[in-house]
């Protein structure tokens, strides 16, 4: 792609944003674990792709489920990027950016909304999370809701563990889950 084309695309992106045509804006962001993919609708952050996840597949999923008007537009993700940077540096304990929950429904949505309220540095069990969502016996379903969390990190599904204290699962890999919990435990004491 030529620089002229790149410049024309930059201008187009601004015009599309001004016209309210950015149904899904996305950008990548650095993290200590590797590049994240951030995606937002006009309502708020809708999806975070973890470093081990396939960005292309994720964008295609957004095109199918939200809108095919999916465009790379880093400026739209500035707040998300800033908050995540501060979170990884240990300076942010509660995300404030608006979220778009439209990828989650029903019981899964209730599970994830509950998880969003688990305080920094604390953990819950899958059973507690299932109970909070109104069905104490749906422990497995709660686990799978965590596994399909569209907005990991910001909706802190890494704070949900097994009853035994074992890590359970994590879409970004168990190492990442463990590191996040360590970071938070360390900072929570200060």
């Amino acid at each position: 792609m030529t620089t002229k084309t790149a410049r024309a695309i930059d201008r187009f992106r601004e015009a599309a944003a001004a016209e309210g045509l950015l149904d899904v804006a996305y950008a990548s962001a650095d993290s200590p674990f590797g590049p994240l993919l951030l995606a937002a609708t006009p309502r708020g952050l809708v999806r975070i792709g973890l470093p081990n996840q396939d960005s292309e597949a994720l964008l295609e999923e957004l095109a199918a489920k939200v809108s095919p008007r999916v465009l790379e537009a880093p400026a739209q993700l500035d707040q998300a990027r800033r908050e995540l940077d501060r979170y990884f540096a240990g300076g942010l304990r509660q995300f404030e950016l608006p979220l778009d929950w439209s990828l989650s429904h029903g019981f899964r949505l209730r599970v994830l909304e509950g998880i969003a309220t688990i305080p920094y540095g604390e953990t819950r069990t899958y059973t507690e999370v299932a109970t909070g969502a109104g069905n104490p016996r749906a422990v497995r379903a709660a686990g799978s809701a965590c596994g399909s969390n569209p907005i990991p990190l910001v909706v802190p599904c890494h704070r949900v563990l097994r009853q035994s204290g074992a890590l359970g699962g994590y879409a970004g890999g168990l190492e990442m889950k463990e590191s996040l919990l360590e970071l938070e435990a360390e900072r929570a004491q200060t």
Partner: peptide
Amino acid sequence: RTLPPFQTLLDRYADDVLG
């Protein structure tokens, strides 16, 4: 078939369109 993300149209065809 679902449409690809619009960004892929820019990535693939912006040069052609400008040309």
